[in-house]
Design a protein around this nucleic acid. Structure first.
Length: 585
DNA sequence: GCCGTTTTCGGCCCGACTGTTTTCAGTCG
């Protein structure tokens, strides 16, 4: 079963319990478990095999026992018994926007919907025939809304696409510099997942504090790339851009800027935890401020810093507001000193146009150009990591010849370049059987290698894990590059036993790459956290195939920050000599 | 059902919006 299927099952359990009138906290528990499973990048069934189900937040002894039974025997008696008490036609209706358990059961029973396979179509027919409006609790308006929601559901087809962070970030920064030019603009910021630097973004949300809201809103909707104004009000507006990217503007009162920014930045789970924390101290927290429960006195916050401080907490950076222990850490003065872009002294994955005749894509710019770019970025070092020469198109002797020449070229550049040190690395495929796609002797011509998967992404987890570990076992290989192999919106990552891989890397002097390429943003943050706990070191690489690609290091840094990493976890923060020693040791 | 510097019991966030209601229920974020 996929995570999505498991999450849906638990969501259905929550719905069933809602209809059956179960304890509402039990319902919330099932919903929480469903939501953390649906957002997990680790395969839950795999975790179950390793006996690690309880690692997932919100999955405790009861749910994990039922899931274990389900995975081992193909069904869970408990789940089946509860779900059997609900008419089956209820469940498909839950997928329609605006439908919850109560509305679904009411319609299913009053309209007599029996067939779960045709439930949505049957409902649509009933609405068209005007059979919903007369029902108690419904009316003409809700009948129309149901028809609209069904259309919406059908159009979406359940697959809403999220933008990779760098795309959303570009849209936002262009919009921000446009709105900043207004004299009335006092404060401006991004909100939500964009501000927390999630790898993928749904809507771009912006906040503006202004002394002239109408002017701000007018300018917002008059922005040149707006293709359609979806909503326009006194507190904000929503527009669609050329490629139907959704952008929301929210006008925020300067006196409450801190509270609103905090609230709309989220995450939801962080906010819930923060409110629970505040309540224990006698404060009720909402998006407008903090209320003293006893006296009703309201405190307003112009900055987030003052808000967190008022609650006795250090300022929590947006990237780690995910309810992963950050509030407790802020309380105890134990927040990590997260890595910053300025601490990154070089790029450890760059592809030049050097004619290495690779099996994958070559870069577009010369080594020289990329070195100059590295200088401009203020780097102390840069690593060339072209793909290995194609092994199907060359003999071993030819490959060695290519590698020899490349080494000579890099040596020459090393000698002639003072300000930036150059590393002679190579990105080498791990073939399906775990063998490196480079003859052993050819590895003599590099300082160290990155190993990565570029084919047969669908091997079963055990086989994939053995393949990766075998590839990494070569003494020259020091970095496991773009570890999951995912391409956002295009390809799921490999299925592997990551905890085994991380343990191996921590114990065998292998670093894990955090790849900043926009469609990769790989490793995902929860796996970074797991790898860090095992003691792994990390590298940052843009995977740039031209000089402009080298500007995207900031997204690798965001990802590392989301994974709680500091400069001590990341090899790019070392001085060149220490780094060279680490890679050649 | 989950969870823990309030840890094996006794808690469990807060408000907006919508449509149907004359004070609330359901859904959403």
């Amino acid at each position: 079963m996929t995570n999505k299927e498991i999450a849906r099952l638990l969501k259905n359990m929550a719905a069933a319990y809602t209809i059956l009138g179960e304890n509402r906290f039990k319902i919330i528990a099932y919903e929480n478990a469903a939501s953390s499973i649906s957002s997990s990048v680790q395969e839950v069934q795999q975790l179950a095999r390793e006996g690690k189900l309880s690692q997932i937040g919100g999955v405790g002894p009861s749910i994990s026992a039922h899931l274990d039974e389900l995975f081992k025997k193909g069904k869970s008696i408990h789940f089946d018994t509860v779900l059997a008490k609900i008419p089956p036609a209820v469940f498909p209706l839950l997928e329609i926007p605006g439908f919850g358990p109560k509305k679904a059961i009411k319609l299913v029973s009053k309209l007599g919907l029996k067939n779960k396979n045709t439930a949505i179509a049957d409902l649509q027919k009933a609405a068209r025939e005007g059979k919903i409006a007369p029902l108690e609790g419904f009316g003409e308006k809700s009948q129309q809304d149901i028809l609209k929601s069904i259309d919406l559901y059908r159009n979406l087809g359940g697959k809403e696409q999220r933008m990779p962070l760098p795309f959303a970030s570009n849209i936002a920064s262009d919009y921000v510099s446009y709105l900043e030019k207004l004299k009335s603009t006092q404060n401006i910021a991004t909100l939500g997942s964009l501000r927390r630097s999630l790898p993928t973004i749904g809507d771009v949300d912006l906040a503006v504090a202004t002394d002239n809201p109408p002017e701000t809103i007018h300018s917002f909707i008059a922005y040149p790339s707006v293709s359609r104004v979806v909503e326009e009000g006194s507190e904000g507006a929503t527009v669609l851009l050329q490629n139907s990217e959704h952008v929301d503007l929210r006008i925020i009162d300067k006196k409450r800027w801190g509270s609103m920014l905090q609230y709309f930045t989220g995450s939801k789970k962080h906010n819930i935890r923060l409110r629970e924390y505040a309540l224990k101290k006698g404060y009720s927290l909402n998006e407008y401020g903090i209320k003293e429960v006893k006296t009703g006195k309201m405190h307003l916050f112009e900055t987030e810093e003052s808000l967190y401080k008022f609650l006795g907490l250090l300022y929590i950076p947006p990237e780690i507001r995910e309810d992963r222990g950050e509030i407790e850490a802020a309380e105890k003065n134990q927040l990590p000193d997260l890595i910053q872009l300025s601490q990154v002294k070089g790029d450890l994955q760059v592809h030049s146009s050097y004619p290495i005749e690779p099996s994958h894509d070559l870069g577009a710019d010369t080594m020289k150009d990329m070195i100059n770019k590295a200088k401009k970025l203020g780097y102390k070092f840069v690593a060339f990591t072209e793909h290995n020469p194609s092994i199907s198109k060359h003999t071993t002797a030819q490959i060695i010849e290519i590698m020899k020449k490349r080494k000579a070229k890099i040596e020459q550049l090393k000698d002639s370049t003072k300000s930036v040190r150059i590393l002679n690395l190579l990105e080498i495929d791990i073939m399906t059987d775990g063998v490196l796609a480079l003859p052993d002797k050819a590895l003599d011509y590099i300082d160290a290698g990155l190993a990565s998967i570029h084919s047969s992404f669908n091997q079963p987890p055990e086989q994939m894990t053995r393949r990766v570990l075998k590839g990494l076992s070569h003494p020259k290989i020091k970095i496991y590059a773009h570890p999951t192999g995912r391409l956002i919106n295009q390809r799921e990552g490999i299925k592997a036993q990551y905890s085994e891989i991380f343990t191996y890397c921590a114990q065998n002097h292998k670093a894990i790459e955090i790849n900043a390429y926009p469609l990769r943003l790989d490793l995902p943050d929860d796996l970074i956290i797991e790898a860090r706990k095992k003691g792994c070191k990390f590298t940052l690489g843009t995977d740039a195939h031209d000089i402009s690609g080298m500007d995207l290091m900031t997204y690798g840094v965001s990802l590392a920050r989301r994974g709680w990493l500091t400069r001590h976890d990341i090899l790019n923060a070392l001085e060149y000599n220490e780094l060279y020693q680490w890679l050649t040791n």
